[in-house]
Structures are given as structure tokens and as C-alpha cells.
């Protein structure tokens, strides 16, 4: 049989009637209280005054943002894979064709509209993972706030603002034609 007989600890009479156990418990909590009161232990960080920014690990996942490369090209080609993968459906993209007058016309496609609804975003990083163009990255910005819902929707301009320029990425479009 798959029954496991658990051996309960054998309690002495004073343990059974909560006498010694009660004292023991009270001493433990008292110990914690004293340690905190004497300032020997510090767990809580006083957030707005103290920040963790310097200690953020490299893999920290903050707000997603679009990046441009060292040539000033917006890397997003509007393949809409992030829109597809996004679990909370926070991303909305409307693609457009790059006009032939544009220096990067050979890339052909770019987003006309790229919105990330930061109220919906769950910072999962799927968009970064799925992006075939290394165009979207999760930055370390975490304090994304706004006074209205509309303010919490990051549009293309804002996303490039947060993302900035990223160098050293694969530039597969450069050797086209």
C-alpha cells in the first residue's frame, strides 16, 4: 500500500499542554523583535529614498522598449511576432511599407503604429525572446506610472525613447542588394 505512516513527534506533558512550547515560541518572536529594534537586522528597503537600481541583475526584466542601431535604423520590421506571442495581448502593431525615398527602403517594412499597453504588460520578456530582428528589449525601467490609461500606453516614439541606441547587434539588412 502506498500509505506512508508519519511518525508524529512524541510530546512531553509540558509540551502537550503548551507550557514549554508557548514559552519557546514567545522567545523566538521576542528575539526577532529585539534584533530589529537594536538595528542588528535590516530586511526592508525604504523604497523611494533607497533604491535597488545599482544591484539590478543583467537579466532584470523591466519595461519593454524598441531600439535603433548604430546606423539610426529602427530595427523593428513589424513582423508582429511579439503581438502574436504576447500573453496578455498588450502589443498592437500596424505595419506600413517604407517609402522608396527612405534610405532604408530596402528593408521594405516598418511599424506605422507600435503600442504597448503597460497596464496589460506582465514583463514576461516573451517579446524580446521571440523577436527575430533584435528590435525589442526589456529595459531596467520598472517605475512605469501614469495618471490615465492613455498615458500608460507606450507609443512608438516613447518606446524608442526608452530603448535608445543599441550597438553590436546582427545587421543582416546591411548587405542586401
Amino acid at each position: 500500500m502506498a500509505t506512508v505512516v508519519v511518525q508524529r513527534p512524541k510530546l512531553k506533558w509540558h509540551e502537550k499542554w503548551f507550557i514549554s512550547t508557548l514559552a519557546k515560541g514567545l522567545l523566538i518572536t521576542l528575539g526577532h523583535a529585539i534584533a530589529i529594534l537594536r538595528g542588528k537586522k535590516k530586511v526592508t528597503m525604504q523604497y523611494p529614498e533607497e533604491k535597488w537600481d545599482a544591484h539590478l541583475p543583467d537579466h532584470y526584466r523591466g519595461a519593454p522598449a524598441l531600439v535603433t542601431d548604430e546606423h539610426g535604423r529602427e530595427r523593428c520590421v513589424s513582423c508582429q511576432l511579439c503581438e502574436f506571442i504576447c500573453p496578455p495581448r498588450a502589443i498592437t502593431i500596424i505595419p506600413e511599407e517604407i517609402p522608396s525615398t527612405d534610405p532604408w527602403a530596402k528593408v521594405e517594412k516598418r511599424p506605422r503604429l507600435f503600442n504597448i499597453d503597460m497596464i496589460r504588460c506582465i514583463y514576461c520578456g516573451m517579446c524580446e525572446e521571440v523577436c527575430p530582428e533584435q528590435a525589442i528589449f526589456l529595459r531596467k525601467d520598472y517605475a512605469i506610472t501614469g495618471l490615465s490609461r492613455a498615458e500608460m500606453v507606450h507609443d512608438k516614439k516613447r518606446l524608442y525613447e526608452i530603448g535608445g541606441v543599441r550597438e553590436g547587434l546582427v545587421n543582416k539588412w546591411n548587405d542586401l542588394k
Binding site: 513589424s78 513582423c79 528593408v107 517594412k109 527575430p132 542586401l176
Partner: peptide, 11 residues
């Protein structure tokens, strides 16, 4: 074959 899939409508 070019690595066009991100901009290719057939993808």
C-alpha cells in the same frame, strides 16, 4: 534564400 521571413507576407 534570404532571411526575409519577418517582412515576408507569406510567412
Amino acid at each position: 534564400h534570404p532571411l526575409d521571413c519577418p517582412i515576408c507576407d507569406q510567412a
